[in-house]
């Protein structure tokens, strides 16, 4: 390689390394702020030493606990429990839930923390996992019967 090419290679490589370094430092500094949501255990135990304040607006993401969905028969009000690995946080919500909302599925809710483990949500989003399979396979593998949301047990 002749010296001029080497010089250009160094210059180009240098620019890329410096920018990569700057961006990784930035991402490191932002750290957990890039996370879309808190998990239930982070709400109860705190995330990197900081516990969310009561009244704080936040997002929570977790699995809907089986059998925890309670609907008000006269309105759209609904409440359910969320869990990840430890403590449970209860979410209450007024509105229509997305199609993929199921017990045992992951969801992300935006709202206010109203108690230690109580959240009033303004928006509930379903989080889908990366597994795709036909209904027969799902039934054989996981014992999940394919149910349309309108026919599922919590209605």
């Amino acid at each position: 390689m002749n010296p001029r090419r080497k010089q250009r290679l160094m210059a180009v490589g240098g620019i890329v390394v410096v920018v990569a370094g700057a961006i990784s430092l930035m991402l490191y500094a932002l750290g957990q702020n890039i996370d879309l949501f808190y998990t239930p255990s982070e709400i109860v135990q705190g995330k990197s030493g900081q516990k969310p304040q009561i009244g704080q607006r936040l997002r929570i993401g977790g699995m809907v606990v089986e059998g925890s969905v309670r609907r008000d028969p006269d309105s759209l009000a609904v409440s359910f429990d969320l869990v990840d690995t430890g403590p449970i946080v209860t979410v209450s919500y007024q509105g229509i839930l997305p199609d993929l909302f199921r017990e045992g599925q992951g969801i992300v809710a935006t709202g206010h923390l109203v108690g230690e483990t109580q959240i009033e949500a303004q928006e509930v989003l379903a989080k889908h996992d990366e597994e795709y399979m036909p209904p027969e396979v799902a039934e054989a593998m996981k014992g999940i019967k394919h149910v349309k949301p309108s026919e599922s047990s919590y209605n």
């Binding site: 890039i34 879309l36 997305p98």
Partner: peptide, 12 residues
């Protein structure tokens, strides 16, 4: 929109 319940969310 139909699956998550939103068109867009500012996730990573």
């Amino acid at each position: 929109k139909p699956m998550w319940g939103t068109w867009w969310v500012w996730d990573a």
